[in-house]
């Protein structure tokens, strides 16, 4: 499963577009992590309340919603740090330029997919709102969750674009200079 510590790739801590995207995306992932900690606290509270015979109503649905929003917030960070797992078997001997080209294809797929998801999940948000989808116990509207999720997908598209530009630079004759 991926590298445990996703080491930033070269040029990511620099200034310019990639650097800015990396900083925003890292901050966004930390917000997702904070949300995960809130869900942890909620479950702790429910365990403690349960001991006294009064489990918190709606803890299941809030956990589902909270973790889903957090997981979407993690996706851009995965993209920018290259944490999405690949199989290097056939290409381990390939030249850096070939690798850069293949990585560029990967970034292109990520960019296309995030753009598609933004479009479709925006339609999903409108559906959820129009048909009044809510959670069972607390009646929290599901479309609320779609708002931060769409922001996450926007950042995913930005991250994919940054990876794309980086790989394209590596492919260009001048080579590795960043920004």
């Amino acid at each position: 499963m991926g590298s445990p510590v996703a080491a930033p790739r070269e040029g990511q801590d620099g200034t310019g577009f990639t650097g800015a995207v990396t900083r925003i995306v890292t901050f966004w992932a930390l917000l997702g992590g904070a949300l995960l900690l809130i869900v942890v606290a909620l479950n702790m509270a429910s365990v403690i309340a349960g001991i006294f015979g009064a489990p918190l109503p709606g803890d299941f649905e809030l956990t589902e919603m909270g973790v889903a929003v957090a997981a979407f917030a993690f996706l851009p960070y995965c993209q920018i740090t290259g944490a999405n797992v690949t199989a290097d078997i056939f290409t381990s001997g390939a030249s850096p330029r070939v690798i850069a080209f293949l990585s560029l294809i990967g970034a292109l797929v990520a960019l296309a997919f995030s753009a598609l998801l933004i479009w479709r999940m925006y339609a999903g948000l409108l559906d959820q709102k129009a048909y009044d989808y809510t959670t069972a116990i607390l009646q929290v509207p599901h479309w609320w969750a779609f708002v931060p999720i769409l922001a996450s997908l926007g950042l995913l598209a930005l991250s994919a674009l940054a990876s794309l530009m980086q790989e394209a630079r590596r492919l260009s004759p001048e080579g590795k200079t960043d920004e």
């Binding site: 349960g50 015979g53 489990p55 109503p57 709606g58 299941f60 649905e61 069972a136 116990i137």
Partner: peptide
């Protein structure tokens, strides 16, 4: 009174509350 009871739906949760028990939503 005070018992923890698994419920299926929101109306089920209301019934349990009306009967003085604590509803627990659970798959």
């Amino acid at each position: 009174m005070g018992k923890k009871i698994r419920v299926p739906t929101r109306t089920g949760a209301w019934v349990i509350e009306a009967l003085g028990a604590a509803p627990v939503a659970m798959p």
